[in-house]
Design a protein around this nucleic acid. Structure first.
Lengths: 391, 391
DNA sequence: AAAAGCGCTGTAAACGCTTACTTTTCGATG
DNA sequence: CATCGAAAAGTAAGCGTTTACAGCGCTTTT
């Protein structure tokens, strides 16, 4: 039996009945547990971390005391002491949420959210929580909040190039950073992205080889978004190779949203110039808006114009016509990002600096293929996914 | 000029060039700043918190030192010391994300994500970050991870009744909790929810008064979900009052997803019993699936059967037919939840324990109203939103 | 039987900050 | 110019853990 010398604890279970109200009284600490179990705080800590060298009998005593006191370890204190926080940060573009709520709710939604969910699930599997950090127009303060996270999270995942290269480098000098949907040329961080090149190439080939189009159009995502830029460039490249026309007038600027796609197409229709045979859209929502505008103008899809999307969000399967699109797995993207980050955290070294995920062309009716071919998905599996030690 | 007595710092700017790699060396602390500025750490802390009583000249010296050292305050240490973490936790139902990724990606998506985004934006406005914590089938560990968060976050927002009342009470004994989409009967926590009753009542009235239906059906959300239960009960009550029939065979079980809605309707159609004139669905995705199944069976909407949704997610506006639905603002829900939580954190006391947000009936074509009436939205504004001190 | 080794456990010093309390500084006053 | 009081700055004690190091009681070795 030992006597704890510098005992500081003060709150052996003060569980004053169940009065329902939120009575936040100070919680028991390892000092309380130690006292009750008749051991030192070091032993409590060791038992807590199921570390080596605690005699079973002692461990049981400690565990019992913890149970009796309803002890919950303070993860902040653990974090301060050990430098490990078990929290991963995820930074994403958060478009303005103001009074005009409903008008903007959709922007870039869906896809980003699926990534977030994939990341969360995987993080949880590794024992981490996910700290969300929106960035964008209505999150003004710039780098400061991100820098402050630096002491809270163990690593950072950044979606959609929220920062410029220099800022990423600044950040990654403090903690490991994984970039999502970047262009893959960051020297400061690991990059995980989807194979936009192969995706747009297969789409272009499909249009050319199967539907024999001679003239195509493209509807972009949000200006400057790396994914949008990559998709446009890759599509153009493949189209050029095929000897098909992509006129400037047929490259429409949108913003990832249905409303944007609708607006862009209305604008194009107003020009009264002859339309291309097909519009490839930077994502599914845009395609939905584009088709809506075409319908409104009395044009049929795919009879008069072909349209394709990107992402394969679930809902577009239920559209009329069902959307031909590129399937990419957002959750996989999030999962791989987390795996890469955790691997970095564990090994401090990763084999590859860039991971490219495969896509798949999903042929449905909006490109003019027959309804029966819906389940016929031509698969263009691409790049290697480096196997990473998971778990 | 002072000499710091117990100086512990050790890393005056060790910014070894820019070698791009992630070199995580120990960061400067207030001790380093203090030394460089020739003051004590207390003064540094006070300058950092722009607290009273720091002479401008001194403050400038300190700030300059911080800038030179690229000092970033360690928020974990601040949290441990002050008990304030500037992090809010948000717990949500995370449906399985496994190999069968694409099949399940949609479930409960969209709406929850909008809530999350609203919460994040508002939290950021208050200076807080959002810590995401998924719960559900693939997040096994039960209460433990939530309890552990207790020392990390200042408060908790829980979506969709992830926990039973007892568990909520356990949690709220440690930190303030706000419940979302609950039934409003928790004594342990503040509840924020949408006015399902008024919503379903106005929908029922519309069907009865305008479309003179005699027999209706309902397609539920995920079993046991409080929102689904509330919507079904309210719809039934309003329908009963109107003297209209809601037969058991016309109450279909679904799960918030399009696939679920489609499956449920296929099952109903297989019965070969006469259909009701209208199916009210628990959310928009379900309605999309239901319409899909009806179309597949050669039935027209709204000519043969009327259909309505709930949520007013953006994409359903672009469907054929455009969906009649109940608009609720997910981001508002998230924002109000955060406001309520922050208010609790500030005042330790809030006027109301339950906040009910209004909904709005949005009449489009799927209920049989003319296309022209699309923008004619009958507004049934309901309950009071208690004005909360924001900012 | 003393020395050495090993397995547990205790002590105390971090971790990086906030803050109560104390001391110094400085301008104003008589 | 000494005195006083407020303002500014310093000292040190936490906050709740982890962990290096030390110590104690055994068993094993010689």
């Amino acid at each position: 039996m030992y006597f704890v010398s510098g005992y500081r604890g003060n709150n052996a279970l003060s569980m004053l009945g169940d009065q329902g109200e939120c009575v936040v009284d100070s919680q028991p600490t390892i000092y309380d547990v130690a006292q009750r179990a008749g051991v030192s705080i070091a032993t409590v800590s060791r038992a807590l971390n199921s570390l080596s060298s605690v005699r079973p009998a002692t461990r049981d005593k400690v565990l019992a005391a913890m149970r009796e006191l309803e002890f919950v370890p303070n993860s902040v204190a653990r974090g301060l002491s050990s430098g490990k926080h078990w929290i991963l940060g995820l930074v994403f573009m958060q478009t303005a949420v103001d009074n005009n709520v409903l008008a903007v709710e959709e922007a870039s939604l869906l896809y980003t959210d699926i990534v977030i969910r994939g990341a969360e699930a995987r993080a949880a599997a590794h024992g981490y929580s996910l700290l969300l950090c929106g960035a964008g127009e209505n999150h003004p303060a710039g780098m400061t909040p991100l820098m402050n996270l630096t002491g809270t999270v163990d690593g950072l995942i950044m979606l959609d190039r929220v920062l410029v290269e220099d800022e990423v480098a600044d950040l990654s000098r403090r903690i490991p950073v994984v970039l999502l949907a970047g262009r893959g040329d960051s020297s400061a961080a690991i990059t995980v992205r989807v194979d936009n090149e192969q995706a747009m190439r297969s789409l272009a080939q499909h249009f050319i080889d199967v539907h024999h189009v001679k003239r195509v159009g493209f509807v972009s995502g949000h200006e400057g978004s790396p994914d949008s830029v990559a998709r446009e460039a890759s599509f153009r490249a493949a189209i050029d190779e095929g000897g098909v026309t992509l006129a400037d007038v047929d490259i429409l600027k949108s913003d990832w949203t249905s409303a944007g796609g609708e607006g862009a197409m209305r604008g194009r229709l107003a020009l009264d110039a002859p339309l291309p045979e097909v519009f490839a859209c930077a994502n599914d929502q845009t395609a939905v808006g584009v088709i809506y505008a075409l319908h409104a103008a009395g044009l049929r899809v795919p009879e008069d114009v072909l349209v394709s999307g990107f992402d394969d969000i679930t809902l577009t399967r239920y559209f009329k016509p069902p959307l031909t699109t590129i399937r990419q797995s957002g959750s996989l993207l999030g999962e791989v990002a987390v795996d890469a980050l955790v691997a970095t955290l564990d090994n401090s070294e990763l084999a590859v600096r860039t991971i490219v995920l495969p896509t798949e062309l999903v042929v449905r009716e909006s490109c003019g293929c027959a309804a029966e071919s819906e389940s016929l998905t031509e698969i263009y599996k691409t790049t290697v996914i480096p196997t990473m030690a998971v778990n």
